[in-house]
Nucleic acid binder design. Structure first.
Ligand SMILES: [Mn+2]
Ligand SMILES: [Mn+2]
Ligand SMILES: [Mn+2]
Ligand SMILES: [Mn+2]
Lengths: 218, 218
DNA sequence: ATAAAGATTTAGGTTTGCCGAAAAATAAAT
DNA sequence: ATTTATTTTTCGGCAAACCTAAATCTTTAT
């Protein structure tokens, strides 16, 4: 392990996430979009990473992480989520303003630092967005992927996480007054547009299907 | 302010420290040694930094930071020392193992993070090595620069800091059982080699002049 | 099956930081 | 005042990541 460039860590992390949504190898274009670099740059990097032994790659066939590559990717995810937890739990940042900073902090090289941080935070299982934090061996806590839009009227669920891709979404959800751990009662689902009428923290809200798809519950 | 490269921050920080020990402009060679890069590289960078307006520099005449340059340098020192304090006070690192990690952390870009961290730490005035931490306006707390080798036999002083350049020194001092805030009684100074016989934490020790020069006291 | 479209790779270039060797300027020694 | 030594700069080059434009491979549509 250890001694990977900031750029390399970012590539491995991106490929790791992309490979979860598809069975095949991850395509050059997908990586390119995810990292906001041009496809030609990605091709070049894939050859380099293959040489380093962190992924398998055959021309035009996409990339797949090796065991080592996966380890590095997961270690990076671990750091990212621990730092996000630190920022929210200890420094009182909002959950919608930590991602950018964590993108920087996740590249700090010190195994000891990461482990001490985890201990300092009390070995959290989930980050501020409800995403699972792998332990020092790279093992994730088990977690359901049930999103709010799959729940039925009359049921009551607890907010476990929010997809943390778009900061606008996080801000919007925060503005609605919905937070991690809040209980949501589903009153009704509108047939026409699949929007939901819910009650949370005492107030009644109308949520679009898009929003509901991005809220994970238990 | 803001938006300086990791490398640029390191150059500015190095020049800032070097300029404290001499009145004239900082020499290319001095910077080269301090950053462990070749003089030719330094020359190149000095031209670039001059263009950016963070320092004044005339060929063969050495470099001097501008107001802006000094601000960036001090902001970097601030971050470095706050992170060192965090590592020691919150994550239970030893004071001899934090410098390396802080060298990485000092380059994280987020004014808000730095200020929140300072608040979280309780606005410390000194870092774990006794070095002063500038506030958000770049103002340092006043502090004496009295080193142990300038004290006289019979006097009793308090350890305020240790020069944090060489990790071996920090380890040695830690091994001797000397820590920040400890009280030292000076028994005798040996004429021959200026070594000191002292008592600290109940035990009697013999310290070389070199070591004494690197321990700051009050 | 062929052509068009889309994805991927190749080739040639750029920027940032770095180096070594040689030239030029400054400082020290005779 | 020269000569010698030291410091600094210039010049040509390199590696990491990036880009654009052109070529090639794969997929989709006719
Ligand atoms: Mn994030
Ligand atoms: Mn997250
Ligand atoms: Mn330090
Ligand atoms: Mn320090």
């Amino acid at each position: 392990m250890s001694n990977y460039t900031l750029t390399e860590e970012n590539y491995l992390k991106a490929i790791y996430f992309l490979s979860q949504h598809s069975e095949k190898g991850v395509s050059t274009n997908a990586i390119s979009e995810s990292l906001e670099t041009k496809p030609s740059t990605v091709t070049e990097m894939l050859r380099k990473l293959k040489e380093k032994g962190v992924l398998n790659y055959k021309k035009y066939q996409g990339a797949e992480l090796t065991g080592e590559g996966k380890k590095v990717a997961i270690a990076t995810v671990r750091k990212h989520r621990l730092w996000e937890s630190f920022l929210v739990d200890k420094l009182n940042f909002g959950w919608d303003e930590v991602h950018e900073i964590a993108e920087q902090l996740e590249h700090i090289q010190s195994r000891k630092l990461t482990d001490r941080l985890e201990e300092f935070l009390g070995f959290p299982k989930y980050d501020p967005h409800g995403d699972p934090i792998p332990d020092r061996n790279g093992v994730f806590p088990k977690s359901s992927d049930l999103s709010l839009d799959n729940c039925s009227p009359g049921s009551s669920v607890k907010v476990r996480g929010v997809k943390d891709t778009a900061p606008e979404l996080l801000k919007y959800i925060a503005k609605l007054g919905i937070g991690l751990g809040d209980r949501i009662e589903i009153l009704e689902i509108e047939e026409f547009d699949h929007s939901m009428r819910i009650v949370v923290n005492g107030q009644e809200l109308q949520l679009s299907q898009l929003v509901c798809k991005n809220i994970f519950v238990q």
